Simulated scan of single mutants.
Amino acid sequence: MAMNSIKMKKLLDDRFNNPEWRTSFNRDKDVYRVEWQDTHQGISITVPNVIAKYEQSGENAIDELVYHVEESLKMMHVKQELEGKEKQIYPVIRSTSFPKKTKAGVKMVYSDHTAETRIYYALDLGHTYQLIDQKMLDTEGWTLERLKEISMFNVRSLSTETKVDQVAGNNFYFIATRDGYDASRILNEAFLEEMRLNAVGELAVAVPHQDVLILVDVQNEMGYDILAQMTMQYFAEGRVPITSLSFIYENKHLEPIFILAKNKPTNENETKKDE
């Protein structure tokens, strides 16, 4: 018998049966919600999306959903402090379309990066992390500069071991540890400088989604075309997509590029502006 919204709602009711939580189902919007009884903070789940994943992966899809919802609910219910947790603070890369405020209207803490990307800051909680907002910063009496300095120090401590593939005479390097900070390694300037110094051609860099950093020693025009196709594919498949554009790294600067029909990189500085 095919799965439908009502059956899925009953399945989710069973899995989220907790006296401290309240569940509800909006039939008009096909949205299931789980929230804390006392604070009403919670997670809204689009049921058709869950059904689609269930039809592909069965119970594994529900197990994964329950795990992520439970982790997120726990994170909402615990007051997070920064003091004493300096080693757990990391920068995370997001697109410039990522919200600048929380749903509660609190300003997120972020720094400018490129025309396509922005740097946010996260407190690592083990299996997940919490993005740091202005309220958390004010409570601790921290400045953005202190937060930035701590996070950049920590990102430099992350492994930069790469997997290497040679495609059409171009060397492609991948970091995909899935520790939540793969794309963040683009902020490790010493690493980028080392890669640039050892490159035969130009060094191109891409962060299509949170869980991968791609670096390419581009030695011919085909390299740009392959990178463009690869970045677009990764961007479409990423759990937390960032940007489908790639960058040229030169003189300690990242310049967004796009690929024309003749596989030639073109400066996009005049057409892309910071939001």
Rank of each mutant, 00 (worst) to 15 (best):
K7L: 13
F16M: 03
F16L: 02
N18Y: 07
P19L: 08
W21V: 08
F25G: 01
R27Y: 11
Y32P: 06
Y32W: 13
E35A: 13
I43S: 03
I43R: 03
S44F: 05
V47E: 01
Y54K: 02
G58H: 09
A61S: 12
V66G: 02
S72W: 03
Q80E: 14
I93M: 11
R94Q: 06
F98Y: 15
K101H: 13
K101Q: 10
K101G: 01
T102L: 02
T102W: 02
G105T: 08
K107M: 03
D112M: 09
A115L: 05
T117K: 00
D124Y: 04
G126R: 10
Y129H: 14
I132C: 00
D133Y: 04
Q134A: 13
Q134N: 12
T143G: 06
E145C: 00
L147N: 01
K148Q: 13
E149C: 07
M152H: 14
T160I: 12
N171A: 04
D182C: 10
S184G: 08
S184W: 08
L187V: 07
L187C: 12
R196N: 15
L197V: 09
A199R: 00
A204S: 07
P208M: 05
H209M: 04
L213C: 05
I214V: 15
L215N: 03
V216P: 07
D217P: 00
G223P: 02
Y224N: 10
A236E: 14
E237V: 08
V240M: 10
L245W: 06
S246Y: 15
F247G: 02
F247H: 04
F247L: 04
N251Q: 14
L254Y: 03
P256L: 08
F258W: 14
L260S: 14
N263Y: 12
E270C: 03
D274W: 13
